[in-house]
Design a protein around this nucleic acid. Structure first.
Length: 269
DNA sequence: AATACCTTCAACCGCCTCCTT
DNA sequence: CAAGGAGGCGGTTGAAGGTAT
């Protein structure tokens, strides 16, 4: 493949954008939309390549950008999401409305990494520094792009139900223990789900988890919804709310909640 | 006040995947 | 099926501004 074709073209400006260029780009997109990015520079009378225009729009000119410093809540969410998906900035950005992947990446590299190290946590593995000292390439572990054949991070979560089987009218049948295997956390992108193993066509606002049981056939090879962990309809696992309402802290810290109370305790492997 | 060093962040680079031809 | 265009992504760079000496 090699370089993008637009990069071969000569006489294209590089470097910082001038206010005039910004104005041209904004005016063009406001009027016509971006359409095909490669044609934007010509139509908007800009001496830039299409990729440069796209980047400028996405990272700086888009009207829905939040900008400004990150809140504590946002920072916490970034750390939690990074622990789950690694350096997949676009997926992390999808959970933070108004923030761009570039912005989050920069914030991570300049601030969060430092803070985590100062508090004795390895920013790549999210484990205590004492545990990972002298280990393997930690940056590579966190990055999903270090190898073209590297599979996405997969999480197997051991669950011990707090609610006993058939202990109430909801008649939920829960095995004594079960595990949740998340084959590809990339599917946790807001509003989309393209990488799950089955039934992905109808999950525009839902996410699926593959669940296998350690104590019988009840949960074997079943697909459950991610949106709420709802005990009254048999073996369905979902969470309430919009994708951004997912209880990440609970997911990562070890509990899954639902309207009906806790159903399981999660141990991350 | 001058210089060196550090931090931030916008933008580029190169690679990947998807889609069209 | 292969080639190439286009969009998207993560890593990296370097200019600008801030802070320390």
């Amino acid at each position: 493949m090699g370089r993008h074709s637009c990069c071969y073209k000569q006489k294209l400006r590089k470097g910082l954008w001038s206010p005039e260029e910004d104005e041209k780009l904004v005016r063009h997109i406001a009027k016509y939309g971006h359409g095909c990015w490669s044609s934007v520079p010509k139509l908007a009378d800009l001496q830039r390549c299409g990729k440069s225009c796209r980047l400028r729009w996405i990272n700086y000119l888009r009207p829905d950008l939040k900008r400004g410093t990150f809140s504590q809540q946002e920072e916490k969410l970034i750390i939690e999401l990074h622990a789950a998906v690694g350096n997949r900035w676009s997926q992390i950005a999808a959970q933070l409305p108004g923030r761009t992947d570039n912005e989050i990446k920069n914030y991570w590299n300049s601030c969060i990494k430092k803070k985590l190290r100062q508090s004795g946590i390895d920013p790549s593995t999210h484990r205590p520094l004492s545990e990972v000292e002298g280990g393997e390439d930690k940056e590579a572990m966190a990055s999903g792009r270090t190898s073209t054949s590297a599979p996405p991070p997969s999480h197997t979560i051991e669950c011990t139900p707090l609610r006993q089987p058939n202990d109430d009218a909801n008649d939920l049948v829960v095995p004594s223990s079960f595990s949740i295997s998340v084959p590809d956390l990339r599917c946790l992108e807001a509003g989309s789900c393209s990488n799950t193993s089955a039934n992905s066509a109808n999950c525009s606002s839902e996410f699926e988890l593959q669940i296998s049981s350690s104590s019988g056939s009840l949960f074997d090879s079943s697909i459950f919804q991610w949106l709420e962990l709802f005990p009254s309809k048999g073996a369905q696992l979902h969470f309430d709310g919009e994708p951004e309402d997912l209880k990440w802290s609970e997911y990562l810290n070890g509990t899954i909640g639902s309207d009906d109370g806790l159903l399981g305790e999660i141990k991350k492997e």
